[in-house]
Design a binder for these strands. Structure first.
Lengths: 164, 164
DNA sequence: GCCTTGTAGTCAGGTTACCTTACCAAACTC
DNA sequence: GAGTTTGGTAAGGTAACCTGACTACAAGGC
């Protein structure tokens, strides 16, 4: 269940007009949050149902930029915009679940390579496939061009904001 | 700075192609998160700059459904989809900042009314105005209809997901 | 070859934003 | 007026981040 309530969560009351008005400006924030959370939850639900349990949205950062041949922690942490410590904790969790292992880097005695296990590699690929699948479902319901427009509009707004 | 890194955060390297491909499926999640965080941060930045410091995104839940004449904690917590305890903590923070006060409810000895102070009421109205302002800026850059389409598409996707 | 400086990763401890369980006191029910 | 419901608080836990301090290895200068 999403953490952010939206007006659709309320049953009709005599206060609906005022609530709707009060929430109107924040609505876009709530919508962005809900859709993101819904998408993430649905994805992990399907991944778990397919035999890859235990993974949480926050574990996504471990897989997002993970090379099949192994990646360094500092490298992944930087790409994720996270500290090495925070990232390391997620790696430890994902390792405990059996999706990655940490092996010493043969090229640098200080470093360790984070390498997906076969099971982890399958989960990684499945996750990407499921994202695509959900997007196809959206496209089937709303039209391909509207989903494409959504992505493009978000990208442009993000660029706009980053330029500030 | 947004917590979720996007490809635009990276400077060009020879690994860009692989990174872009790896991140492609998750991109929509990252975009949704970034845009939401950007919007929220920008809003609180402007609110703080206008003389209402100390407010954080999580305090939004206190103001979102707050009646100018006062509201009950349970009521607001339920509308926000939060426990009373969690909500109460945010109220305590916002009260410490001087934006609301808790007064006994004259109609129910158990209850307290959360009432915005004059300063808090100004902040509340300003916040809503700033959300509208930022949206107008987006509309100026991208076109009114694209921003409207963004909201509508998000709403439909959320409805779709909620129906599951 | 040593010595300084930089880098990879971990440890300890703190903060924020939630949660659950347990409780008190006032209010409603009968 | 006893029993149940409701408004709010207290205590304690967890997830997901952070900063500062540390160790082990690497690399460059001399």
């Amino acid at each position: 269940m999403p953490a952010i309530a939206t007006p659709t969560d309320q049953r009709p009351t005599q206060a609906d007009d005022r609530d709707a008005a009060a929430a109107a400006e924040q609505h876009l924030v709530a919508l962005l949050g809900s859709v993101k959370d819904d998408l993430l939850e649905e994805m992990y639900r399907r991944v778990a149902a397919a035999g890859y349990p235990g993974l949480r949205p926050s574990h996504g950062c471990v897989f997002r930029y993970l090379d099949v041949d192994g990646s360094r922690l500092s490298d992944l942490a930087e790409k994720s915009g996270m500290t090495k410590q925070a990232f390391g904790e997620h790696v430890a969790n994902v390792e405990a679940l059996g999706y990655v292992v940490r092996v010493p880097d043969p090229e640098d005695g200080r470093a360790k390579l984070i390498v997906p296990t076969p099971h982890g590699r399958e989960a990684l690929l499945l996750g990407r496939e499921i994202f695509a699948e959900i997007e196809r479902e959206w496209a089937a319901a709303l039209g391909v061009e509207r989903v494409a427009a959504l992505r493009e509009t978000l990208r442009e707004i993000h660029t706009l904001q980053a330029e500030r």
